[in-house]
């Protein structure tokens, strides 16, 4: 239906992740899980998809013997987000006319 919209971003959870990361320098997995109210399994899958698309950078390390995943948006991710928002605006303007 909305064929101009980037399919990677046009998904509820992936869009939420990118929108969250656009406003911060970096965020860890639990923070994103808490704010997006998602399950760990689903979040992992969507983070991997965003990473594969080159939209986010994922760093895995250990903190006090616990695995810690930190995510940050890439330049490519910011660019894709801007294009997505512009496309959305286009649809909304068409609706109004």
């Amino acid at each position: 239906m909305f064929k101009d919209l980037d399919p990677i971003l046009h998904s509820q959870l992936r869009l939420a992740i990118i929108s969250l990361l656009i406003g911060v320098k970096e965020a860890d997995f639990n923070f994103i899980k808490e704010k997006t109210k998602s399950t760990a399994g689903n979040l992992s899958v969507q983070i991997q998809k965003l990473k594969d698309a080159g939209y986010i950078e994922v760093t895995k390390q250990f903190k006090d013997n616990y695995p810690l995943t930190t995510c940050s948006i890439t330049k490519q991710g910011v660019h894709a987000f801007e294009i997505y928002v512009k496309a959305l605006q286009g649809y909304l303007h068409t609706d109004k006319n």
Partner: peptide, 11 residues
């Protein structure tokens, strides 16, 4: 598109 904008704004 309205739902998308709501998600963006909320996050």
């Amino acid at each position: 598109p309205t739902e998308s904008l709501a998600i963006i704004e909320n996050m």
